[in-house]
């Protein structure tokens, strides 16, 4: 069973919302991790996030974040920050997300021991398959942040001698910079 999870969130059909999956692809193309780390794109799972977070040792999330910063800005968040806001009234299964899953697991005594979020501020989140240039430009820094987070935790990350081609299935036009 993996004890560490690298998880991307976001919808690849909604322009910059697909940042997380693009970072994950770039990471997998450049690095190899051991069997104790699961690397997976979860899309927009809402509360369906909880099976990956429950009882995990360590979780690294990659997602777009709403913040008063220029598009492409990278922000890192720790568990305390993610837990510090109260959830709102629930209406649809999409409404609960990361915060709500964490709070629910916290109540159950099963929150991940450590979790951090690597967030990038989007420019455009309407329908479309491409990232905007300023958000795509943040991919290398976000990949580096994933590697740094794993290394800080003492988890082995090995760079591939020859990076794999990054060809996202959702677009032949998307260029993911290394």
């Amino acid at each position: 069973m993996p004890t560490t999870y690298v998880l991307s969130l976001g919808n690849v059909l909604m322009s910059d919302d697909g940042l997380g999956p693009a970072v994950l692809r770039a990471f997998e193309a450049q690095y190899v991790v051991g069997p104790d780390v699961e690397v997976i794109d979860l899309g927009t799972p809402g509360l369906d996030l909880s099976p990956w977070l429950a009882d995990a040792d360590r979780v690294i999330l990659i997602d777009t974040v709403k913040a008063e910063l220029p598009p492409g800005s990278l922000r890192l968040y720790k568990k305390e920050h993610l837990l510090s806001r109260a959830p709102g009234v629930r209406v649809s299964p999409h409404d609960p997300g990361v915060k709500e899953t964490l709070l629910a697991l916290d109540f159950a005594g099963r929150a991940p021991r450590d979790i951090e979020l690597i967030g990038v501020v989007p420019a455009v989140t309407t329908m479309g398959l491409d990232l905007t240039p300023e958000v795509a430009a943040a991919i290398p820094a976000a990949v580096h942040a994933v590697v740094a987070a794993l290394e800080r935790a003492g988890i082995a990350v090995r760079a591939r001698p020859e990076p794999l081609a990054v060809d996202p299935w959702w677009s032949t036009d998307v260029k993911i910079p290394a």
Partner: peptide, 19 residues
């Protein structure tokens, strides 16, 4: 069991009011 948006997910970490 409404499921409407089918689309978007930018996380509002600092959101003061989400609904």
């Amino acid at each position: 069991d409404p499921c409407i948006a089918c689309a978007i997910h930018t996380l509002d970490v600092d959101g003061h009011e989400v609904s």
